[in-house]
């Protein structure tokens, strides 16, 4: 049996939506996620035709062919510093997801999954508060329809600019409208706090060790949610919709050295790279994305990892902290 899942990526501009998507297949391939290694997920970009085809028509993947599709181009752009997603359209990317190892039977029997991930510019769904941004064409209507038709929503928020008030009002209103909509097909919402590596810049080679601790992620999420009370609106979606919070980093942490993968010696925001090489090869030696698979895997499978947290988990810890604070 094959299940099709539409996942809409939404968030403010420069939040890391496209970077999360561009690093997704590498994150799965490198098992740089918080799921059990025994889950053994496999994620492969496919074409729109393959996504749309009936299962019986689906051609066998050519093992040796190199797809020069939209996703490959996106990955190449990401390697070269990134290209801001324009507001001229929304952009769909397609994947085949399978779980080859241990997973609960109720999950395994639904697979493999054909994913349609919809990427769009942050200016469309989450423009700055109060700004009337002139955008060409009716792309807003298209994205609104896609959001209502999606089974999952991945909300990507930049962790280090969370208190930036330029878009919080717009995003809060979007969540309100979503909660009130009767036409939605939404089953899951994942709030992914991106750019997680930036919190660990000063920890040098200890950065990865701390980042890998789910308790640290939980603490960071609790603190982030305190700074973003408007995210409480997501509670209105429960229990019909499962809401999860997680952290991720498209740049991740360097292999071997374990520090945050942000090279201070290069202009702009660049990953560490081998100087003698060009393009993606230059970065691959050190690049290990961090948890960028989590939002998509949860959105598709509904399966929790060590780094996906529900309101119940966040609230439980909050109560514990409140109690212990009396004794402190």
């Amino acid at each position: 049996m094959t299940e099709k899942v539409a996942i809409c990526l939404v968030g403010p501009k420069k939040g890391g939506k496209s970077s999360l998507l561009a690093s997704l297949t590498d994150c799965v391939a490198q098992s740089a996620f918080g799921y059990s290694p025994r889950l053994r997920p496999a994620l492969q970009p496919i074409t729109r035709a393959e996504f749309s085809a009936e299962p019986s028509e689906a051609r066998k993947a050519d093992l040796l062919s190199i797809e020069q599709g939209d996703y490959e181009r996106m990955k190449r752009d990401f390697a070269e510093g990134g290209v801001a997603t324009d507001t001229l359209d929304t952009y769909e990317y397609y994947f085949r997801l399978s779980v080859n190892g241990e997973a609960p039977p109720e999950v395994v029997t639904r697979g493999p999954w054909l994913l349609e991930v919809i990427d769009s510019a942050g200016e469309i769904a989450v423009p700055p508060d109060g700004a009337e941004v002139p955008i060409l064409n009716d792309v807003k209507a298209k994205l609104a329809r896609q959001m209502l038709d999606s089974e999952a929503l991945v909300l990507v928020l930049p962790m280090v600019r969370l208190e930036d008030s330029a878009w919080t009002g717009t995003l809060a209103r979007l969540l309100d409208r979503l909660a009130l909509s009767r036409d939605r097909k939404l089953k899951r919402v994942v709030v992914a706090f991106s750019q997680y590596e930036r919190l660990f810049i000063r920890l040098g080679p200890s950065a990865f060790t701390y980042a890998c601790d789910p308790a640290v992620a939980l603490h960071v999420l609790k603190k982030s949610l305190r700074a973003a009370q408007w995210l409480d609106r997501l509670r209105a979606l429960e229990p019909a919709v499962s809401v999860r919070f997680t952290v991720c980093s498209a740049y991740g942490f360097t292999k071997r050295f374990q520090n945050a993968n942000m090279d201070p010696h290069q202009p702009g925001e660049r990953r560490f790279r081998r100087a003698s090489l060009e393009g993606a090869r230059a970065y691959s030696e050190y690049w290990r994305p961090f948890l960028t698979a989590e939002p998509m895997l949860y959105a598709a499978l509904g399966l929790d990892s060590a780094f996906t947290f529900s309101y119940a988990q966040l609230d439980a810890r909050a109560k514990e902290s409140a109690a212990s604070s009396i004794l402190a």
């Binding site: 752009d77 510093g81 990134g82 290209v83 801001a84 324009d86 290069q266 202009p267 702009g268 925001e269 660049r270």
Partner: peptide, 12 residues
Amino acid sequence: EDGEGGAGRLHQ
């Protein structure tokens, strides 16, 4: 985005 001759993200 960081200006002509810059090294950052590109925009159309």
